[in-house]
């Protein structure tokens, strides 16, 4: 058992790195895409322009397509992209690229729907305060949607944790890889158990913190 635990340190670090980096990248890029999707479809922003409606339809198709790929296929498909960005298609850093690519459309949808849920009366009020669209977006809509955005980010991180289990395929390591290589392929039930329990603890931790943050934001309102 002690040996199983000692095997844990490196994969745990790899998993944490993969989750943190891909959450950060997807948080920024997916957030921007989500804001874009919202602005294109909302009548108060660009939604009334024919060009915007067309762009929204294109973006919808692209996002749905990206989200349809089984993750393992997506991972192989973005290998060239990993090589371009991190210089290699193997290893933990390389695994961050497909994770981000998978999370961006997911998070974009979450941001789009969180912003769309803000009451249109609140947008009317912000407009009547003579604020610019950008100001309304960043000073009103995002703060108003913050609890939903936090919940959505939590959901994204947990999905990423699941996807990261497949990083072993491209040598990315991580807890899922540990469970497969030791637990499954070498019949080391103890290592499998340690890896799986660690993943469960991580999921619980992420969910607990996400819920707590969202709740504390709501409690101050």
């Amino acid at each position: 058992m002690n040996e199983a635990l000692s095997l844990l340190a490196k994969p745990l670090g790899e998993t944490l790195l993969m989750i943190a980096a891909s959450t950060l990248i997807a948080g920024i890029l997916g957030g921007l895409v989500g804001i874009f999707l919202f602005a294109l479809s909302n009548d108060r922003f660009a939604g009334k322009h024919r060009g915007a409606r067309f762009a929204k339809r294109l973006a919808d198709r692209a996002i749905n397509m990206l989200r349809s790929f089984p993750y393992i296929i997506l991972m192989v498909l973005v290998l060239p992209l990993s090589r371009l960005i991190v210089g290699t298609s193997l290893g933990t850093l390389a695994a961050i690229v497909p994770l981000s690519v998978a999370a961006i459309p997911f998070l974009a949808r979450i941001v789009e729907s969180a912003l769309s849920e803000v009451d249109s009366g609140v947008i009317d009020a912000a407009i009547s305060c003579a604020a610019s669209k950008t100001r309304i977006l960043f000073a009103i809509l995002i703060p108003e949607a913050l609890p939903s955005l936090v919940s959505g980010l939590t959901l994204t991180m947990i999905s990423l944790l699941g996807y990261s289990a497949m990083a072993g395929v491209i040598g990315g390591g991580g807890l899922g890889d540990l469970a497969i290589r030791y637990g499954y392929q070498r019949f080391r039930g103890d290592v499998m158990a340690v890896a799986v329990v660690t993943i469960i603890i991580l999921v619980e931790l992420i969910q607990f913190s996400g819920t707590a943050i969202a709740r504390s934001i709501r409690a101050k309102r």
Binding site: D119, G121, V122, A125, I140, P143, L146
Partner: peptide, 11 residues
């Protein structure tokens, strides 16, 4: 402009 449902910013 004032509204029936007040439309204050909850945040």
């Amino acid at each position: 402009f004032i509204f029936q449902s007040f439309n204050l910013f909850a945040s």
